[in-house]
C-alpha cells in the first residue's frame, strides 16, 4: 500500500513537471520564465534540507554553503573547461565532497545536535566572508576570477551537451531545472523506500536504539548529509544558470530562508517544502514590488502567522484536514 502510494506520488510529480515544462514556456514571458527557474532551483534546495532535516533529523544551518559551492564550482568549471557539460559533474562533486568532509568531522567527532547547527552555520559564514574577500586579481582559479563581493557575473549558461557553441535558451534551462526537481523528488522517495532510508528515519526516531540494533549511526547520518549536500549543490548549479554566482549564495539570509521554507511546508515531508519554497519566493518577489514596505517585514509576519496557525506545516495540515473530511 505504502509502496503504491510512493510510486503514485512520484509519477504525479514527474507528470506535473512534464506539464509545467510543456505549458509554462508557452504562456510566460522571458522574465517570468527566469523567475520560475529560480523558484525551481530553490525548490531543489528546499528538498535537500527536507531530506536532511525532515527525515535525517539533522538540523543543518549550512545548506547554503553547499548551494554556494555548487554554484561557484559550476561557474569556475564552466569558465575553465568551456563546455558546461563537464562543469555539471564538477558542480556536484565539490559540494558532495565538502558535505562528506564536514559530515565526517561532525558525526565521527560526536558533535551534539546543537553544536552541529552552530558548526554548519559557522562554516557557511566563513565561506561567505572568504568569497567576499576574493576581489583582487590574484584570486582566480585558472581562467575564472572569483570576483569578491561582485561574484562571477560572466557565469556561462548550460550548453547543448558536447556543443559549447550552442547555449541553452532560458526556456530550455527551465525545463532542465524542472527535470532536476522531479528527479530529486523521485530520488528522495526511492531513498526513503530503501533499507538505507528506513534506517535513517529510525535513527531520527531513536539514535540509541538504532545503534543497539547494530547500525552505525554515524555512517548513515554521513550518507544522508552527503546526499543532501549534493542536492544543494545541484540547486546552486541551476541558480548559477539563471542569475549568477555571488557571495550572497552563502549568506545568512539564505541559510535562514531554507529552514523557513521547510518549516512552512512541513518538516518530515517532501512536497510541502517544495511548495513552501515556491510560495515564499513568489511572495518575496511580490513584496519587493510594494512601495515603502520592506519585504522582510512581510516575510517575518507570514512566518509568525504560519507557525501559530499551522505549526505542523502546510502539507501535514492539509493532509489532516482531508483525512478528517473523508472520515465517516
Amino acid at each position: 500500500m505504502e509502496r503504491r502510494r510512493a510510486a503514485f506520488q512520484s509519477g504525479l510529480a514527474v507528470f506535473a513537471a512534464a506539464v509545467a515544462a510543456w505549458w509554462l514556456p508557452q504562456v510566460l514571458e522571458l522574465f517570468s520564465i527566469i523567475n520560475a527557474t529560480v523558484y525551481t532551483a530553490m525548490a531543489v534546495l528546499a528538498l535537500s534540507l527536507a531530506l536532511v532535516w525532515g527525515f535525517g533529523g539533522i538540523l543543518c544551518f549550512g545548506q547554503a554553503a553547499f548551494f554556494g559551492l555548487g554554484g561557484y564550482a559550476y561557474a569556475v568549471g564552466a569558465l575553465n573547461v568551456g563546455d558546461t557539460t563537464w562543469a555539471i559533474p564538477i558542480a556536484l562533486l565539490v559540494p558532495t565532497l565538502a558535505a562528506a568532509a564536514l559530515g565526517y568531522v561532525m558525526f565521527y567527532g560526536r558533535i551534539s545536535d546543537v553544536y552541529m547547527g552552530v558548526i554548519t552555520l559557522t562554516v557557511t559564514l566563513i565561506l561567505f566572508n572568504f568569497i567576499n574577500s576574493t576581489a583582487g586579481e590574484e584570486w582566480r582559479i585558472g581562467a575564472a576570477p572569483l570576483g569578491g563581493f561582485n561574484g562571477i557575473p560572466a557565469t556561462p549558461p548550460l550548453n547543448v551537451p558536447g556543443d559549447p557553441g550552442t547555449p541553452l535558451t532560458p526556456e530550455q534551462i527551465f525545463v532542465v531545472a524542472l527535470a532536476c526537481l522531479a528527479g530529486c523528488y523521485v530520488l528522495c522517495k526511492l531513498i526513503l523506500r530503501s533499507h538505507f532510508g528506513r534506517v535513517v528515519v529510525a535513527i531520527r526516531e531513536n539514535e540509541l536504539r538504532a545503534s543497539l540494533l547494530g547500525y552505525d549511526v554515524r555512517l548513515y547520518k554521513l550518507g544522508i548529509f552527503t546526499i543532501g549536500g549534493a542536492m544543494a549543490g545541484l540547486a546552486g548549479m541551476l541558480f548559477a544558470n539563471c542569475v549568477f554566482v555571488s557571495p550572497t549564495m552563502f549568506s545568512l539570509a539564505y541559510s535562514g530562508q531554507i529552514i523557513i521554507w521547510v518549516m512552512i511546508g512541513g518538516v518530515g515531508t517532501l512536497f510541502g517544502p517544495v511548495v513552501g519554497a515556491m510560495l515564499l519566493q513568489a511572495l518575496t518577489a511580490w513584496a519587493g514590488t510594494l512601495p515603502d514596505i520592506n519585504p522582510n517585514l512581510i516575510l517575518g509576519l507570514v512566518l509568525v502567522v504560519a507557525v501559530l496557525a499551522i505549526p505542523r506545516g502546510l502539507q501535514p495540515t492539509l493532509a489532516g484536514l482531508l483525512r478528517r473530511r473523508e472520515a465517516p
Binding site: A202, E205, N206, L208, R209, S211, L212, L213
Partner: peptide, 22 residues
C-alpha cells in the same frame, strides 16, 4: 555500541528505547 550489538548481543535499556514514529 553498534559493533558490540553486531557481535550477537541484544540489549534492552532501562527506559524503553523504541522508534516511536514506526
Amino acid at each position: 555500541p553498534h559493533a558490540i550489538a553486531r557481535l550477537g548481543i541484544g540489549i534492552k535499556t532501562q527506559v524503553p528505547s523504541l522508534f516511536d514514529g514506526l
